[in-house]
Structure formats: structure tokens, C-alpha cells
Simulated assay, not measured.
Amino acid sequence: MERIERIELGDAEIIRILEWQGPFGPAARLVPDLTEAAWHRAGTDHYDPVDGSGLGALQTWAIRCGGRTVLVDTGVGDDRERPGTPMFHHRKGRFLDLLAEAGIRPEGVDAVVNTHLHADHVGWNTRARDGQWVPAFPNAVYHLPAADLAFFDPAAAHPARTDTTLDPARWTEWDQVFADSLAPVLAAGQAAPWSGTRTIGAGLVLEQAPGHTPGSSVLRLESAGERAVFVGDLLHSPVQFVHPSCSSCFCLDQAQAAASRRRILQQAAELGELVVPAHFAGPGAARLERSGAGFAPRWVR
């Protein structure tokens, strides 16, 4: 399933680094408000009708534009303690090899964007060296949403830590993620927390889209009159194109996530932006047209 795909967008090159593709778990749990019929209409690239699984991917998107290389999200990482998420626990992958096959050296990465700070978006922020976690991209600026840093940093003691509706085991794993994938970047002085909007290079603008997490964000790319928007976990499946009011089980604030999703997708349809989600299996990016209360995708990859 590992592969590299390339998309030309204006003068920019978008590279899909696909590490893994397969079942993410029962579709009925992944996006709970959807019917089985809605999932069937998503197609077999995104839904397994035999066992009812929602299909997804672990992947990173690389952007080459204006002489710079930017990575959008960095997957799970290797050798991580993730006992609460078996598919992430002690994972071994070929991420750095895949980057090399795409012509990307760690030293040549100029910026890393974490659209939010969940385990499967920050894992390759760091790598193990001499028994320590160190930044995997020594010359990169890591753009981290400030609202997520405030939420997930154990030292910040966010009030949500006393929220009894959140499973304490989730905080345990979030703290492990912070310790191995975020704290080393902060300690190295390579982190650039941001809020509101941030321009990170010519034609590259970060924008908040909260709900999935407090700091969830999108990255907009404009090159030679063409546009794309990297939406992270704003969507987990193309069924959410058709039903944008339906949020995944992973969204901390489902109503806010739905509002962000509708806003970003509406703008994408109006501007002709290529929508690039983090976890789609099969085709990974699409342009949208309005269709009823939702949107119809026209797949690019």
C-alpha cells in the first residue's frame, strides 16, 4: 500500500507520501450520525461493505513551491508507546525511505505544519537518536497551533483535564504524544506557535478551523492562479462531503467541527480549491461542487 503520488498545481508540486491504507474501524462508529446507505454510496475505496469498516490512510502531504519544501502532518512515527491505539503502538514504517524516494532529505525540509496535535499528525516530528527523541527535520520551522499546545501540554494544566466526559486514558496517551513528538521540538527552539492566521511562505497561509481539536487548522496554497486547501481532520471520509454536518467520533466539539467543515468546504467550492484531507484512502484529493445540502467530489487523485 505504500506509495508516492504527485499532483501539479500551478507552479507547485504536491506529493502524497502514503504510509498505510486500510480499515480505520467500524464505519458506524467513525461517523456515528450516518446511515449504512450513506456509507455504501461512498464507494469501496472508502467503505468495506463486507465488514462495515470505514477505510482510511496514514499519509503526509509534501509541498514544493518557490524553492521551499513544506510537510503537512507527519503521521504516527516509529517505536511510539501508544498502548491505547494498537495500530499505532510500536509501529515500524518506511516514512523516511518514502521521503527519500520522493527526493526529500530531512535536512532539506524548510517547514513542518501540524494541522492539529493528535498522535497520527505529529509522529515523525521527531526521531530517536542515542536514546533521545530529537527533531527529525533539523532545519525546519514547526508551525504548531497555539490553542492545541495550550490544550495538550501537560504543564499548561488545561481545565478540560477535569472534564469527566473525557476518558482519562486519552489524557495519558496525549501526554505520551506530547513528550515524544512535541516537547523535543519545543526544547530545540524549532517550534513556531501561531493563532488566527499565519503566512508561512509565498502562497501558503494557515487558518484556524477549530472543533476537531481546539487548534485544528487548514493550510491554503495558491500558485499561479490555482488553489488547494489541506484540511487535516476536518473530514475523515468523503461521506462528509455529502453530509458536512456529520462529525467524526474523534471531534472534541462536534458542533464546532461541523461549522468549520461547512465554512471551509463552501469556500473551496466557490474558489475552485483542491481539497486535500489527511486520511482518505483511494483517491486522496478532490474538487467540489454544491449538491443539495452538501458537496459532490470530482476526484483528482
Rank of each mutant, 00 (worst) to 15 (best):
D73P: 02
D45R: 03
L99I: 09
P135N: 08
D51M: 04
G131S: 09
R127Y: 08
Q132W: 08
E107K: 07
G66F: 02
G93Y: 03
A100K: 05
A42D: 04
T115N: 15
R94S: 12
V112A: 08
P145D: 11
G75P: 08
A128H: 14
P49D: 06
G52S: 04
F95A: 02
D78N: 15
T74Q: 14
K92I: 11
L55S: 01
R80F: 00
P83T: 06
T115L: 15
Y47F: 15
R68E: 15
H90L: 15
V112G: 06
H40G: 03
G131H: 06
G131R: 07
D110A: 10
W61I: 02
V141Y: 06
P138D: 03
D73I: 09
P83H: 08
Y142C: 06
G43T: 13
D79T: 12
T60D: 01
A140W: 10
Y47K: 07
G77I: 10
L98E: 07
G66N: 14
P86W: 11
H90G: 13
W61S: 05
D120K: 00
N139W: 02
H121N: 13
G66T: 02
V70K: 09
G75I: 05
D45G: 07
I104V: 14
D48S: 04
V112C: 11
G67W: 11
N139A: 12
D97T: 13
A100G: 09
L98K: 01
R94H: 14
H90R: 15
A136W: 06
W133L: 07
K92G: 00
G131I: 04
R94K: 13
N125C: 09
G77Y: 02
G77Q: 09
Y47D: 05
L96T: 08
Q132N: 14
F88W: 10
A57F: 04
Q132T: 06
C65P: 00
I104K: 00
T115H: 08
D110M: 03
G67D: 11
L58V: 10
R127S: 09
R105D: 13
V72H: 12
E107G: 05
V70A: 10
P145M: 08
T74Y: 03
W133A: 13
R80A: 07
S53R: 06
G56C: 07
F88L: 06
G123H: 00
A111D: 05
E107W: 06
F95D: 00
V76F: 07
P49K: 09
L71Q: 09
V112D: 04
H143I: 10
D73M: 02
V141I: 12
A42Y: 00
M87S: 12
L144D: 01
R41K: 14
D130R: 14
G108P: 03
T44Q: 08
L144E: 01
L117P: 01
V141Q: 15
G52D: 05
P106Q: 04
Q59G: 02
D97R: 13
V141N: 09
L98Y: 06
G75E: 02
T60P: 00
G93E: 11
G84E: 12
P86K: 14
S53C: 10
G56H: 00
E81W: 12
W124N: 15
V72L: 08
R80T: 07
H118S: 14
A57I: 01
G67T: 11
D78H: 11
L98F: 05
